[in-house]
Write a protein that binds this DNA or RNA. Structure first.
Lengths: 217, 217
DNA sequence: TGTACATCAGTGAACGCGCGTTCACTGATGTAC
DNA sequence: TGTACATCAGTGAACGCGCGTTCACTGATGTAC
């Protein structure tokens, strides 16, 4: 998100700018390192090294390791998959929307295995530290998806098989479960499984095996 | 003086027996402690304390911490949910089978939160250590479920919406995702969500408006 | 504009603690006679 | 049956290392005049 080039950019960067930059580098490095080794398994030296800095830089920008984890958590959780509904053309027929959404999700999993590892680490952390303020915008995200699903169902004149919010929860859960399985056994999960399941769930399950003669439109 | 007992129990236990018992106590303790703190976060002192023993007992029974993790992994992975299909009465109508299986799964989640935390820790471990021999009997379990689903579909005369193996993968994934969400936000996942989704997926989702009554052959 | 001083982000070394691992030992169990 | 020795599971102390955290310092940036 670099906007207009400020006059500053010809000058030496200000202290504030440099500090913000350092902080960002540390957070990026932490995301990489924590995904790879876990919160407990990764050291602050690992993080600093990955960022090309020293541990002192970490302590100059964060109170301690836990604080770093919390800030990172606020920054990352759930960001991954929020963009998908907006990228699916709502004018396509429903089964193709399902297939397309499934495809996008699977592509994301493949490209950003690391993000998902980090997210799992976050979820475990939250599950083990329930006192921790839960920064999930989970309910807002779920409502957003639920609204989209309801709206498209209304427009296209079909009925959702479950209340929209519950369906949204289930779809998230299915995605998370598929992601998890893929993380451990990539070969066991076909690429189009998520899309096909979406089609089944939304009740427009195209052709079924053993049922010849079903026509695509 | 207690009366007659089996000869063994009057005798002092053999060395071998005592060792096996110690090993079992350590493994139980490790399951508890690793679920609570994670592999990296929990120390062997924690494990030994939980078992009422000392670290030396751990090293007398396992080569090192990694070995303990591996043995525990072999022992626990996937054991949780395998029993469910056998507990569902196959003579019930399909939607009730779905509801019943969902109910059993949810009850298990609630009662054995710790087991699922441990399983997640395992999965993360496997995802991060792909060299590790993957001890999952995952494929066997999947095939077993797939066979059961196929068989019941055949008997009751309906068609599975996806090839049985893929459907089994998806059902596992849905369960895992629901479990994950529940772990973090127990209140956000209705108790009967899994059962209702199973009913939807298996195509007997009560009445769907706009779809004429499906007849069994 | 230049000069002198103040600030403070990041450095690098140090500290102390907890951890995984090792090891000499002990005392109960097993074995030979 | 009893006696003498061997074995070995588990103990408890020790070791060394890596970690989170602290701190005196440095040198670039900021400020006052």
């Amino acid at each position: 998100m670099m906007g207009l080039v400020s006059p500053r950019s010809r000058t030496a960067p200000s202290r504030e700018e440099k500090k913000a930059q350092t902080r960002a580098r540390l957070l990026d490095a932490a995301a990489v390192v924590f995904a790879k080794k876990g919160f407990a398994g990764a050291s602050l030296d690992d993080v600093a090294d990955e960022a090309g800095l020293t541990k002192g830089a970490v302590y100059s920008n964060f109170a301690n390791k836990t604080d770093l984890i919390r800030v990172l958590l606020d920054l990352h959780l759930g960001v991954r998959s929020d963009a998908i509904p907006g990228e699916v053309d709502p004018h396509l027929p429903q089964p193709e929307q399902a297939a397309r959404a499934g495809e996008l999700f699977m592509a994301m999993l493949t490209e950003e295995r690391e993000s998902y590892l980090l997210e799992l680490e976050f979820l475990l952390y939250l599950a083990r530290n329930p006192d921790e303020r839960n920064p999930t915008n989970y309910l807002a995200r779920r409502r957003a998806i639920a609204d989209i699903m309801q709206q498209r169902a209304d427009e296209d004149g079909y009925t959702l098989p479950l209340p929209a919010e519950d369906l949204a929860t289930a779809v998230f859960a299915l995605g998370a479960g598929i992601a998890l399985e893929r993380l451990v056994n990539p070969a066991h999960v076909p690429d189009d499984l998520f899309g096909r399941m979406l089609a089944v769930i939304f009740g427009v399950a195209g052709d079924q095996p053993g049922k010849p003669g079903s026509d695509k439109r």
